[in-house]
């Protein structure tokens, strides 16, 4: 098994120390090992986690949470599966927030840039407080995105929000009742469906398949016995 060479060892402070820290979860104090993620701290403190955990990899946004570190008045946001606990931390998971999602058929929109104002009439009412940007654990400039959406720069919005995990942390803070992530999702989809070039090569390939361009190759390949197929596969590099 692993080599015994003592030189070749990484010391990880959080493992070496085995130090317990006190954290406050939803107002109650618990002792948990320092440095584990908030979700692991929930499990460690005996809580059954159903809501509040999804991918466990920082992609699904199910684990949106608020936290405050010791003696700091500032309440911050994070993805609980990606945040390590430290002594004196206070943590609360974000409850589901009843933001309104507009419904639409993205493919049949006639004027997507104008439709934004029908679907999300609150979008142009942004009051520039910047709370959404400060709340975003993905470090997206959310406020800027809302403005760009309103001014019709859909392309920039779609690029800025590629990192958006739809955690919704930007919505409860908005004083104008905008759900910036939902606005951005609509805008990004419209950008993809309506304002992005159609790839010519893709249609050519679809037609080739429909026209049976590969039929001879298929017939040959599917008639091969196991040995012939293996040999043939070996020739493709």
């Amino acid at each position: 098994m692993a080599q015994e060479d003592k030189e070749n060892i990484i010391d990880q402070p959080e493992v070496l120390r085995h130090k317990m820290v006190t954290v406050e979860i939803a107002g109650k104090k618990y002792e948990v090992p320092e440095g584990i993620t908030i979700i692991k701290a929930l499990w460690y403190s005996g809580q059954e986690v159903v809501r509040g955990a999804g991918c466990l990899g920082g992609f699904c946004g199910a684990c949106a949470a608020y936290y405050r570190t010791k003696d700091d008045p500032k309440v911050r946001t994070c993805l609980a599966c990606q945040m390590a606990v430290q002594d004196g931390m206070s943590i609360t998971m974000m409850p589901p927030f009843p933001a309104r999602k507009a419904t639409y058929d993205i493919r049949t929109l006639k004027d997507p840039k104008q439709d934004l104002f029908n679907l999300y009439p609150e979008a142009p009412l942004c009051r520039n407080c910047n709370a959404c940007t400060e709340a975003c654990p993905q470090k997206i400039d959310v406020r800027e995105g809302v403005w760009k959406a309103v001014f019709g720069d859909f392309k920039s919005v779609s690029e800025m929000f590629m990192d958006c995990v739809m955690c919704g942390l930007c919505t409860p803070v908005c004083i104008a009742d905008i759900a910036p992530n939902l606005v951005a999702l609509y805008v990004s989809r419209a950008q993809g469906a309506h304002f992005t070039e159609k790839p010519v090569g893709l249609d050519i390939r679809i037609n080739e398949i429909q026209d049976g361009r590969f039929n001879d190759e298929w017939t040959k390949l599917l008639k091969m016995n196991e040995k012939e197929l293996t040999d043939h596969c070996a020739t493709v590099k």
């Binding site: 493919r107 590629m162 990004s188 993809g192 469906a193 992005t196 070039e197 790839p199 893709l202 398949i209």
Partner: peptide, 25 residues
């Protein structure tokens, strides 16, 4: 064989696949 038409479906729904300079996937 159905892969390319799936790409087309996803594009029509607004999925933003990376592109080359000439607009191809």
């Amino acid at each position: 064989e159905e892969g390319p038409s799936i790409a087309k479906w996803l594009l029509s729904l607004g999925v933003l696949f990376d592109r080359d300079g000439d607009g191809n996937l």
